[in-house]
């Protein structure tokens, strides 16, 4: 009898867990849609900045700008984008592991952490964190990216970093996201291929106003800001995608467990009934 009660209680508890995971899945799906939309809306700008930059670099001989110049790498900075919250499968783990492999045991690195999960991990492992941005929320704005980029560029220009790597999760679909790492600073010289795909082609010679150098020094910070903006958006979409998938499979698992438990509950009930009948029958036989 006690068996039956226990099973019943477990089924109830799993059911309420299932309700939670189901709700989380649906919420993540809705947020994913919004995050994806933002990624798509940000693409035209990113493409054009890239295009303008590469045409500009092509047009200006001997480009000289602090953000472009390669220095001897004595100290590397990592900008790592993670989520503030867990329950999203391997999302945070994947990206943290990738960075950890690179930085563990090294003293010539420090970090800029975006997102609580990454910050907590690297704080525990005792890495130096130059700046941290947690609690950015669901709605990523360009102003946030601007602030982060400003800080990173300042650190680079002060000579705290000689090279900056940006690590974030690229969004492919709700099922696949991949952690990727790219060099943020010094800005790698743009490839010729990227120049063509905003439809303007490698343009003819330009007139610059006020001068090519002035335009370049305006444009480069925008480029860095935009890279970070894109990283934030992609990461956000990935996080929601990963959460949706993780919560989807949690809901499925809960269903499976409930089915199994229901089966054993029914079996236990049947056994109890059979036992009772046989007791009644046995009792009647003894009387007769």
């Amino acid at each position: 009898m006690a068996g039956m009660r226990d099973i019943k209680r477990r089924i109830r508890s799993i059911k309420s867990t299932q309700q939670i995971t189901k709700a989380m899945k649906m919420v993540a799906a809705a947020k994913l849609r919004r995050a994806q939309e933002k990624v798509t809306q940000a693409r035209p700008y990113a493409k054009r900045v890239q295009g303008v930059l590469s045409r500009l670099v092509a047009a200006v001989q001997d480009v000289n700008h602090p953000l472009l110049e390669t220095r001897d790498v004595k100290h590397t900075g990592y900008v790592i984008v993670t989520a503030d919250r867990g329950l999203c499968g391997g999302y945070n783990g994947n990206i943290i592991r990738k960075v950890h492999q690179d930085v563990k045991g090294r003293n010539d690195v420090s970090l800029v952490c975006v997102g609580r999960k990454g910050r907590d991990f690297f704080r525990r492992t005792g890495k130096k964190i130059e700046a941290e941005y947690v609690g950015l929320g669901e709605d990523i704005t360009y102003a946030m990216a601007k602030e982060i980029a400003g800080k990173v560029m300042a650190l680079y220009q002060e000579g705290v970093f000689d090279k900056v790597e940006l690590v974030f999760t690229e969004f492919f679909s709700a099922l696949t996201q991949k952690p990727i790492q790219m060099q943020l600073l010094p800005i790698p010289s743009p490839s010729g291929e990227a120049a063509g795909d905003d439809g303007n082609g490698v343009g003819p010679l330009y007139e610059f106003e006020p001068s090519a150098e002035a335009v370049l020094s305006e444009l480069l910070p925008r480029y860095v800001e935009n890279q970070i903006y894109r990283a934030l958006l992609e990461s956000k979409a990935s996080e929601q995608g990963a959460r949706m998938t993780a919560m989807g499979s949690a809901t499925d698992n809960a269903k499976e467990m409930i089915d199994k438990l229901t089966l054993s509950f029914n079996r236990a009930r049947q056994a109890a009934i059979t036992k009772e009948i046989s007791e009644v029958v046995g009792g009647a036989a003894a009387l007769g």
Partner: peptide, 19 residues
């Protein structure tokens, strides 16, 4: 609003890039 003063652009303008 260009940095060097306001500028107007009609069709077939010469290629330019300005802040």
């Amino acid at each position: 609003p260009g940095t060097e003063g306001s500028l107007g652009i009609l069709a077939d303008h010469a290629p330019m890039l300005t802040a």
